[in-house]
Design a protein around this nucleic acid. Sequence first.
DNA 1: ACCTGAACACCGTTCAAGT
DNA 2: ACCTGAACACCGTTCAAGT
Lengths: 189, 189
Amino acid sequence: MQLHKRDVVEAATTLLDDYGLADLSMRRLARELAVTPGALYWHFANKQQLLGAVADRILAQVQLPHGDWRVQVSDLCGQVRDALLSHTDGAELVSASFAAGQSAAMTTVVDGLAAAVLQAGVTASHAELTARTVVYYVLGFTVDEQSRRQWDAAGADLPAPAPLSDDADARFGYGVALLLDGLSARQRV
Amino acid sequence: MQLHKRDVVEAATTLLDDYGLADLSMRRLARELAVTPGALYWHFANKQQLLGAVADRILAQVQLPHGDWRVQVSDLCGQVRDALLSHTDGAELVSASFAAGQSAAMTTVVDGLAAAVLQAGVTASHAELTARTVVYYVLGFTVDEQSRRQWDAAGADLPAPAPLSDDADARFGYGVALLLDGLSARQRV
DNA sequence: ACCTGAACACCGTTCAAGT
DNA sequence: ACCTGAACACCGTTCAAGT
């Protein structure tokens, strides 16, 4: 039966979760879908575009937040981080797709952040720049966190007491708060 | 005659500047050095490690700054950005090497930033975290800037008036200033 | 419209064997 | 100690030809 874009993206996500980004190849994905590699190129122009679609799938759960701009920004940051951490190499994949300009969902996130910081009194011309600064932090932090996390998990099974996941939350929140403080310091009200 | 680590790293840097990261392969590098691919594996454990050495070479020009902590931070940020922009795909390469924990020079930069922000009154336990936040921004911004830059350069030769490079400097400075303001807001003096 | 078959031009890495 | 030869197990992408 017919191959649809959605099936391809779903299979790619499963492959990602089970074997990681390094083993997510067009050939392997084709094998998993029981088609020839060339078939994928009917639906996607290239691998980058396909990975962009996977990135968007990973970020699909993210909702634009409401409330005070500070709450909106930290909510959005937290949602993105949670989405990335819920898939193997999710942070690396989304980060690369964003850098390659292949993630529409990430652009939506930037726009959401830009709208929020506008309420903080940032000028229109600086809103997107501010939003990107926040996104660079979220992606940089989470890529780092996830690689350490996966490295630890690859070590001994249950080595130390437990990695204390709350600590990572606090560390993540620290950087977000730092950026929010920078914005507040500039707020003219 | 004998192949030395330095020769390999130098040749890799030339290849990077001339053809970009995507075309910097172990096989092509070996060809350029007139050796067999296997020869490289006597000097480097794997490609990641070799790229880490190239990253360190790119950052070799960066000097630990002096003066007020604010000046130290923005100096260091500017130096790193300049270093990355002076090699094709330099930002992407250093960013990847840093994420993979293969760049000693980048670790030195983080330590330098941590030392600077300590003077801003950040607690010792938050200094490295703050430094990493700054680094995430510098890398994220510069990867973005360089990819746009190279994309534009690949377009028409001399298309519009000129890309206005000072604008990029100002945009970069804006994010650094935002982080510095966040730190200042917390400063207890 | 959608997919196969088959090719093109490559990869990173390992390792016995040579010098 | 340092490197070659040769292999292993793959890649992304294209495109005429089939259905």
